[in-house]
Design a binder for these strands. Structure first.
Lengths: 104, 104
DNA sequence: GGGAAAAGATCCGTAAACGTATCTATCTAA
DNA sequence: TTAGATAGATACGTTTACGGATCTTTTCCC
């Protein structure tokens, strides 16, 4: 309970978890692919830790995604591309929904 | 000269620098907006340091951008949206070109 | 029921991202 | 010339992400 659990990190972690679940992979498998330890990947998924840029990219790629910088003006357009029918949330940054990825 | 300068970080830093230049802002202004120190923002821009997830988002937003997780399958499509006519680089992650943003 | 696999959780030690301070180099304008 | 602003470059101390090890809890399948 030390330090507030940044909502941004929790949001990011939930995106990772969702993608991992959809891919049917274990935390250990992702950690292995991303070259980090399982406890550390767990911290990232739960929003308990703010991963470094390099780690972030490695995790994203391990989950079949890429981290991209998008001009704010284009965010809504891309958002709608990712989710056929989405809701207008707060501040989406970190968005991605892996519909269902089958096939290694 | 200690530790190899990760090309991924250099690439990311160049994107930030490019966006900052286009916006006509100083390193100090971005650092202030992103709640980090100027030396540290400089490290990020030069690729000398791997910023944390929270710092990364703050810097991106200070530059009028958002960090987004994109399924790899959609990367090319989004890439072409960002750059009218782009080249097929290596591994683009971190992409964004701020055409020219005027108006404080 | 039993056992394996996945996840949660906590410790310790190390490496690196952070802030602050300080100094120099360059460039532009008065 | 002299300022002033911007950027490059240290150094040092604090915070925290990281690996590795260990243990418990929860699923889930036989």
């Amino acid at each position: 309970m030390t330090s507030a659990p940044d909502p941004l990190l929790k949001d990011l972690g939930m995106h990772f978890r969702k993608a991992r679940m959809a891919a049917g992979l274990s935390q250990e498998q992702i950690a292995l692919r991303a070259n980090i330890s399982r406890p550390r990947y767990r911290d990232i998924e739960t929003g308990a830790a703010a991963a470094r840029a390099t780690t972030l990219v490695n995790v994203a790629r391990a989950l079949g995604m890429e981290m991209m910088l998008i001009p704010q003006a284009m965010v809504p357009a891309i958002q709608s591309m990712l989710q056929p029918a989405a809701d207008d949330d707060d501040r989406p940054a970190f968005t991605s929904d892996v519909e269902e990825e089958e096939g290694v």
